[in-house]
């Protein structure tokens, strides 16, 4: 029963990832936002990885899933860099080095589970929070836009659960007591269920953030009062004379 439930949930999450990826691709191309294509690549790769994970009992192929986990870290670094750090000093090279190291580790040494990195999610939480603080009180920015910042921070927090398990497994390599606890059948089951729950929560939040159904967007914006008056009212002469008179 349990394997069937987890497999069903995983397939639903795969479909959700591809829906998000397609939406990001469409919006990225339409609005000329190449950073969204990096994020779309993240969702395509993780979706493909999940397919291989789900089919691995039959195919005995787990390395594509490990490759997907590692590659998705690289995609995430590029998305964060291109979204928040144009013409700014950036710690991008540090995070890229970590992502590439994780990718190498996943391909070379990972056996039963890939290594999940917390660093990109922590970076996204930090930089997203900094950017959100700048517009949180700005009445010129619509509420649904502000909500998207918060959703991104929320799903990044949910995404930290899998890396937390990676950290515990690394500790278990050197601390036998931790290994004894971590690799007990109960603990393994709790870990699997816990990771699945938080991955599901994360994907739901990612769906709301990036697909953002129209009704949900309208609901988020329900209290928003535009501060903008009709721009078309002012002619060039009126604009220039208003500004000259002011100054």
């Amino acid at each position: 029963m349990f394997p069937i439930v987890t497999m069903t949930i995983t397939w639903i999450l795969v479909v959700a990832r591809f829906i998000i990826a397609v939406q990001l691709t469409r919006v990225g191309l339409r609005q000329k936002l190449p950073n969204l294509l990096w994020l779309a690549a993240f969702f395509y790769i993780t979706g493909l990885g999940d397919i291989f994970l789900t089919l691995s009992p039959v195919t005995n192929l787990l390395w594509p899933f490990f490759l997907a986990v590692g590659l998705s870290e690289v995609m995430l670094v590029m998305f964060i860099q291109k979204t928040f750090y144009q013409d700014r000093k950036s710690p991008y090279l540090v995070f890229m080095a970590i992502a590439l190291a994780i990718l190498a580790a996943d391909m070379i040494t990972a056996q039963f589970l890939p290594y999940y990195s917390p660093f990109n999610w922590l970076w996204l939480i930090w930089v997203g929070h900094q950017a959100y603080k700048r517009i949180a009180a700005d009445r010129a920015v619509e509420d649904w836009v502000k909500a998207r910042y918060k959703l991104i921070i929320a799903y990044s927090l949910a995404a930290l659960v899998a890396p937390l398990y990676t950290i515990l497994t690394l500790i278990a390599m050197v601390v036998p007591a931790v290994a004894g606890l971590l690799y007990s059948p109960t603990a393994l089951l709790v870990a699997q269920v816990g990771i699945l729950i938080f991955v599901t929560i994360g994907i739901v939040l990612e769906y709301l953030a990036w697909v953002m159904p129209g009704r949900y967007q309208q609901w988020l914006n329900r209290n928003y009062q535009p501060t903008v008056q009709d721009e078309v009212e002012l002619s060039e002469e009126e604009i220039m004379s208003q500004l000259k008179a002011r100054l």
Binding site: V228, Q229, I239, L243, R246
Partner: peptide, 20 residues
């Protein structure tokens, strides 16, 4: 909107005119 508000603050003028 954001640049208009920034310009308005920088030159102490109305946001509507700055956006214009």
């Amino acid at each position: 909107n954001v640049l208009g508000a920034s310009l308005a603050k920088a030159i102490s003028a109305e946001e509507l005119a700055c956006r214009g």
